[in-house]
């Protein structure tokens, strides 16, 4: 029996993660706090450890609200300023 697929095409291909740099030493790390409760705790602790271990520099920013996607403007600025972005969700 032939049936139609129920999903259809996609308008844009899924974004892929950029390849990780082999070494973090000397890199600029961006912290993108999505403003979920406790996300800042996780990200700050992670950033502190990375600075201790690698000597990386850290740039911190945040999204406007956890329920709204980060603006292209913020992402564009981050992309210019840092080599690696750490972000996440939490509750």
């Amino acid at each position: 029996m032939l049936i139609h697929r129920p999903d259809g095409g996609v308008a844009q291909a899924p974004a892929e993660l950029a390849p990780s740099p082999p070494v973090l030493a000397g890199r600029r790390i961006g912290i993108l706090d999505n403003r979920k409760p406790n996300a800042d705790v996780l990200l700050e602790r992670l950033a502190d450890r990375l600075v201790e271990r690698t000597g990386a520099t850290v740039v911190r920013t945040e999204t406007k609200n956890a329920a709204i996607a980060c603006s292209d403007q913020v992402l564009g600025l981050l992309a210019e300023e840092v080599d690696v972005i750490l972000t996440g969700t939490a509750d």
Binding site: L2, I3, H4
Partner: peptide
């Protein structure tokens, strides 16, 4: 956009193999 479901196969299970459906019985979209 067409799939071939084998005769006698359970449609819900066949679609679920693709991650489709909500778990309830479905009408075949021929």
């Amino acid at each position: 956009d067409l799939l071939d479901v084998a005769e006698g196969e359970d449609l819900v299970d066949a679609l679920a193999a693709h991650g489709w459906g909500d778990g309830l019985p479905l009408v075949a979209p021929t």
